[in-house]
Design a protein around this nucleic acid. Structure first.
Length: 502
RNA sequence: GCUCCGGUGGUGUAGACCGGCCAAGCAUAUGGGGCUCUCAAUCCCACGACCCGGGUCCAAAUCCCGGCCGGAGCACCA
């Protein structure tokens, strides 16, 4: 039945699927002013493909509802900051096409955090402890308070002032927000909000010693920045619970929280500390090394950011853990770049065959296939005569002794170290050499002859394919090419390209 | 161990909150075919899944219970 419908009335089905085109579910409680959302990376390095999910999801909703999208850089742990990251993150987001409307840097907001903490202490919702942290933790496990939790706001305030004015050493004191010591999930019970750090901050130097913990600064900022909706990974579910206590104490309206599942990305290096070390000791060429999952590497491999967007929109905001599918991602990207990628021949691991031919053959090879809609953009023209013709060793292994068609040149036969021209179209010589195989099935391969320059392609696993490419390819440096029967390659300069995908 | 969350074709997902229109949609991969002087793109066809066991119900992928499997949190990281 459906088969008949598809055959007889395809328009019925296709129009229907267009209306149901996939998109993200609507957000609840969106007012007239749209949404206010935020992206909150820490500046430990540039963004990678995992961060892109957070950025794309937020940006998609901003596009749908309007409003504000704040880039909030969470630099409250000075020992884990890469100073260049403040800029790299913004570059990465712009490349992705994510339109953040303002930038907020947490290290500029310490005074706000201090004054809010003071209010909580005054209200008896927070305390300052000098008890050993082991004791703090073990008593929490048992649902018991440390001594200072029971003391008056005045006593705690006094310790808070002393903490701020440098009256304690690192590790000696910490400030805590109360939650519920009997919370069934021990992870939610009282959490540390401030601690002393003596490592200088890349932006602030040694101006501050008292650093907020993420759960504190996030709650304060989410409120004061007026967030309506928060989209974050589900690894933050417990953090959200903790932060809600602060909202409750201050009587603030909570944003609407949405937690998406973890994306694991196989065969890809994402850990910034590992990458940083690798760059320092020369294992990686930089943040854009093709083996890395950074957006910088994606850019250099020639991916279109739209493919990343489509991929994550299709993945949705489910809380199920997912595995990034390179296969599907490649397919999305291929569809976007195919029609604009000029075609060239790249012969890797070449075999050079002797070509004894009296005369000249003319090759006129379209730069774009006719179906691309770019056919009028021209072709590459070569003259081929006596000398040699190069084909890949992979093709050679299969074709020695066979009839072959060199693309846009003619029929040839390959015999040991020689190649012989049989004609442009089917003739007696061709028939004779190819007695049994149907002529429509003769393999068509790419080739080079006197029109080549040495070229290398760096693959995503770090290995290199060496060979030769048409010299015409060098007229299109900085573009993704399709090297026919090989794959897509971002041609970076006259010697080298990065492999995009098959 | 404790506290949460989740398990749909080979892969990525939609549907689940508010049971029926789901003998389960889309994409990708694979196989076949059309177009094409690329193993690309494009078009058509085919293939293939509700973790297991109970229960509720006229009716369960969807609700309940148990099991198994997977993930997250339990930091003076974010």
């Amino acid at each position: 039945m459906t088969g008949i419908v598809q055959r007889e009335f395809p328009e019925l089905l296709s129009s229907r699927t267009k209306e149901e085109k996939k998109s993200l579910p609507d957000l609840p409680d969106v007012g007239n002013g749209g949404v206010v959302m935020r992206m909150a990376p820490s500046p430990s390095g540039p963004l990678h493909i995992g961060h892109a999910r957070m950025a794309i999801l937020n940006d998609e909703y901003l596009r749908r509802y309007g409003g504000k999208l704040i880039l909030r850089i969470e630099d409250t742990n000075p020992s884990n900051i890469e100073p260049d990251a403040y800029q790299m993150i913004q570059d990465d987001l712009r490349w992705l096409g994510v339109n953040f409307t303002e930038v907020v840097i947490q290290s500029k907001r310490f005074e706000l955090y201090y004054s809010e903490m003071r209010k909580l202490i005054e209200e008896g919702k927070a305390y300052v402890s000098t008890s050993p942290t082991e004791e703090f933790k073990s008593r929490k496990q048992q649902g018991l308070p440390v001594r200072e939790r029971e003391e008056t706001p005045e006593e705690n305030l006094e310790r808070w002032e002393r903490m701020l004015s440098g009256g304690y050493e690192k590790g000696e004191v910490y400030a805590v927000v109360k939650t519920d010591l009997n919370h069934p999930n021990p992870a939610i019970r009282d959490f540390i909000a401030f601690r002393i750090i003596d490592t200088p901050h890349p932006l602030e130097g040694d101006r501050y010693r008292i650093y907020p913990m993420m759960n504190f600064s996030v709650a304060i900022d989410d409120h004061f920045l007026g967030l309506t909706h928060v989209i974050r990974g589900k690894d933050h579910i417990a953090n959200t619970e903790k932060q809600k206590y602060i909202f409750g104490y201050r009587g603030w309206k909570q944003p609407y929280y949405l937690h998406y599942g973890k994306v694991s990305i196989e065969n890809t290096i994402l850990k910034t500390t590992f990458i940083k070390k690798g760059i320092r000791n020369g294992d990686f060429t930089g943040w854009d090394d093709p083996r890395l999952g950074t957006l910088a590497a994606f850019r250099k491999r020639g991916f279109d950011p739209l493919a990343i967007r489509r991929y994550y929109v299709e993945s949705g905001i489910g809380s199920v853990d997912t595995t990034f599918s390179w296969e599907i991602f490649y397919s999305f990207n291929r569809k976007i770049i195919d029609s604009r990628s000029p075609r060239h021949f790249f012969v890797s691991q070449p075999v050079s065959l002797k070509f004894d031919f009296e005369g000249t053959l003319n090759a006129d090879i379209p730069l774009f296939p006719q179906a691309s809609g770019n056919a009028e953009k021209g072709s590459r023209r070569y003259k081929v005569g006596k000398g040699s013709i190069m084909i890949s060793s992979q093709d050679y292994a299969k074709l020695n002794g066979e009839l072959v068609r060199l693309k846009d040149l003619g029929y040839f036969k390959v015999e040991s170290s020689r190649i012989e021209y049989l004609g442009e179209s089917i003739n007696e010589d061709v028939q004779k050499w190819n007695p049994n195989r149907p002529l429509g099935k003769v393999p068509i391969i790419h080739w080079l002859s006197g029109n080549e320059v040495p070229f290398r392609v760096v693959k995503p696993d770090g290995t290199v394919d060496s060979g030769f490419v048409e010299n015409d390819a060098l007229n299109y440096i900085g573009m993704v090419h399709q090297f026919e029967r090989y794959g897509y390659v971002n041609v970076l300069n006259e010697r080298e390209g990065y492999f995009t995908h098959p």
